[in-house]
Design a protein around this nucleic acid. Structure first.
Length: 448
RNA sequence: GGCCCCAUCGUCUAGCGGUUAGGAUCCCAGGUUUUCAUCCUGGUUACAGGGGUUCGAAUCCCCUUGGGGUCACCA
């Protein structure tokens, strides 16, 4: 069975790039009848943040990606980590290092002065003397001293990391006893049964370290897929400064969750010329080995288009629900002309609500002497009640020998306040004769 | 700077030795629409550069250039 996971650190909200990673993991697990798990990486106590955790979970709920098991919190697994650290200590695969932060810093400066790679020198690796007083030791793992570690990545291929220039005996537990990232990731993934790891390629250079941990503990290595980053418009890793990186911001801005997922799946992955993918199709087609090797730039224009396509394809009831309003035929009238729920809402309101003001530019262009006359005649016919609205429209144009626009545009302005709207006759038929009369009279009164 | 990764239209991508280099988005033009939007039709724009290999390279190899990532007692 394939088990995947997404492991956010609770530093704020769910990042749009994180959501993509989560989606890929979700799809791959589900496609294979496996499990998708969630793990909160909060080993750094000083950064632990409850609000951040709930913000992230809220975002997952919104997009509908659910964990198949209880969410794992690393902050609650101290005993587990301690047990494995003790095991490594006892087996001589890890050791206590009494070097102080200051000493470490000095070492680094010396190495840098010599243009060498900053690297722990292993001075306590085989230490069996008397430990210095007053120093709480960190725990370091014994990494290989030479040779190479190979990461067999299913997207990038086999990658060689020479120990000499990538590894040292890195710290697996801090002086305060808390374990560090590369250690807990390996332990948790192994213990949770995660056997396929799909993550951003910013983790690629961490992978050799995690492999050292897997090997020391005798755990089986998962399959790795390192997916390229999403970049901002200037080609850099997407960060908070780029705006709109919080997943929930997309909800606030009127995007539909399935449209957002559709947009994200197309970053670095494709299926021929297909652009629109339902969740079912994604589940049927997605395979992480097909992900492209190069980074992609995050571009909102495509998302807007996709979102518009999704709005067009939704039913009146679905859209009403998304807008938190009662279903109305107005939705069908305007949904083809909008690309976000915000726009949809404003278009609906434009028709449902009586105009509070009239666009000056529209009036200037479409409310001249003839328009005024025709509109007056139209109003009379409506009040007279002989003709239907459609008939009244036709009769007036015919008797005056005028083009449609001469009457339609002023009517439109009277009904919705501007010269742009869906078909005037459609709007009239939705509003009903009385409301149309009211709005035309109000408009005429405002133009006295 | 060391190490690692990457390189087709502005953007997302198809292509996996032989194609007029395709699609989508964006933009522009025309049509439809009384208007706007939708929709339809058409158009502009790409294989980073240089060497190889080959009868034949966007496709394979090397170099250069460019871009990105990463180098913590952060995750």
């Amino acid at each position: 069975m394939i088990v995947t996971r997404f492991a956010p650190s609770p530093t704020g909200y769910l990042h749009i790039g994180g959501l993509r990673t989560a989606l890929l993991n979700y799809l791959w697990a589900k496609r294979n009848g496996g499990k998708f798990l969630l793990r909160v990486e909060d080993t750094d106590r000083s950064r632990h943040n409850e609000d951040a955790v709930s913000a992230i979970l809220e975002a997952f709920k919104w997009v509908g990606l659910n964990s198949d098991e209880e969410i794992v919190y690393q902050s609650q697994r101290d005993e587990i980590y301690k047990k494995y650290i003790d095991q490594l200590l006892q087996e001589g695969k890890a050791y206590k290092c009494y070097m102080t932060k200051e000493e470490l810093e000095t070492l680094r400066e010396e190495q840098q002065a010599r243009k060498e790679r900053p690297r722990y020198d292993g001075r306590y690796r085989d230490f069996d003397g008397v430990p210095p007083e007053g120093v709480e030791p960190v725990i370091r793992i014994k990494a290989p001293i030479d040779g190479s570690i190979f990461v067999d990545d299913k997207i990038k291929g086999s990658i060689e990391f020479r120990v000499a220039d990538t590894l040292d005996d890195f710290i697996i537990a801090r002086a305060d006893g808390n374990p560090t990232y590369n250690f807990v990731v390996a332990v948790d993934d192994a213990l949770m049964g995660v056997n396929e790891v799909i993550r951003g390629d910013d983790h690629l250079s961490n992978t050799p370290k995690q492999i050292v941990v897997y090997n020391a503990l005798g755990f089986q290595l998962p399959t790795f897929y390192h997916v390229p980053m999403i970049h901002n418009e200037s080609g850099k890793k997407l960060s908070k400064r780029d705006g709109a990186t919080d997943v929930m911001e997309y909800q606030r801005n009127g995007y539909l969750p399935d449209a957002l997922l559709n947009f994200l799946i197309r970053l670095g992955w494709s299926n021929g010329d297909q652009e629109i993918f339902s969740m079912e199709e994604m589940l049927e087609l997605f395979n992480p080995k097909d992900i492209s090797k190069s980074a992609s730039i995050y571009n909102l224009e495509k998302l807007n288009w996709i979102n518009g396509e999704y709005i067009k394809s939704k039913s009146r009831d679905e859209l009403a629900k998304a807008l938190h309003i009662e279903p109305t035929p107005v939705i069908d009238l305007v949904k083809d002309r909008t690309s976000t729920l915000i726009e949809l809402s404003s278009e609906v309101n434009k028709i449902l609500n009586r105009p509070t003001e009239y666009d000056p530019k529209s009036i200037k262009k479409h409310f001249k002497e003839l328009n005024r006359t025709l509109l007056g005649e139209f109003l009379e016919k409506l009040k007279n009640g002989q003709d239907s609205c459609d008939e009244a429209f036709g009769h007036i144009l015919e008797s005056n020998g005028a083009g449609m626009a001469k009457l339609a545009q002023p009517v439109r302005i009277a009904l919705v306040g501007v010269a742009q709207s869906p078909s005037v006759l459609d709007v009239i038929s939705i509003l009903g004769r009385d409301e149309v009369i009211y709005r035309i009279e109000s408009f005429l009164a405002s133009q006295e």
